[in-house]
């Protein structure tokens, strides 16, 4: 279990190039993750590894292939200074936990990170760093393991037009 460190503005084209968007299987997608920009990721990423990145991780296209490719590579947690909006939602929907940590930049490549969600911090190299709480409305989806699991349990949704 190790940290794969990335910089700012890692876009979804870098995570999974356009020519592989005909694939939907996470494991098959994983073999092309970061192809051309960081080839050793697909070869060496292991179950339980963590991605740590700078700001605006996952910017660009809405392709869910991006979080799926990372999931297929074994990534269950991504820690970043900030996330692009669509990626953030997609990650939660497919069962990856995106954590916003303002100090993510100080974590080094190859480091080991421990996460204490309830206490709201992560720890690496003897340093404790606060993480932002996940918005409450997304917490239920995370607890269900993703949006599919959440939706399956849902009998009927209450829309905003119905009284609160």
């Amino acid at each position: 279990m190790r940290v794969w460190k990335f910089g700012d503005n890692i876009d979804t084209d870098a995570i999974i190039p356009g020519r592989y968007l005909v694939i939907y299987d996470p494991w098959a997608l994983a073999t092309h993750a970061f192809e051309g920009t960081r080839d050793e990721f697909a070869q060496n990423a292991r179950e339980g590894d963590i991605i740590v990145a700078g700001k605006n991780f996952g910017c660009g296209s809405s392709r869910e292939h991006a979080p799926l490719a990372l999931l297929g590579a074994g990534i269950k947690v991504i820690i970043a200074r900030s996330f692009a909006r669509i990626f953030y939602r997609n990650a939660i929907n497919v069962g990856i936990l995106p954590l916003v940590c303002p100090e993510a930049g100080t974590i080094e490549d190859g480091a080991v990170v421990t996460i204490d969600l309830d206490a709201g911090f992560i720890e690496s190299g003897g340093r404790k760093m606060p993480i932002e709480p996940v918005p409450a409305f997304l917490k239920e989806i995370i607890d269900a393991g993703g949006l599919v699991g959440y939706a399956r349990k849902l009998e009927k949704v209450k829309t905003c037009t119905e009284s609160q």
Partner: peptide
């Protein structure tokens, strides 16, 4: 992601991923 273009017509329009879209198709 470029669904935001329909704001040119005064709509609130936004891009979503496929799982969110699966939810929309259903509900």
């Amino acid at each position: 992601s470029h669904t935001c273009m329909y704001g040119a017509a005064g709509a609130f329009a936004t891009g979503i991923g496929s799982t969110d879209m699966g939810f929309v198709l259903k509900f």
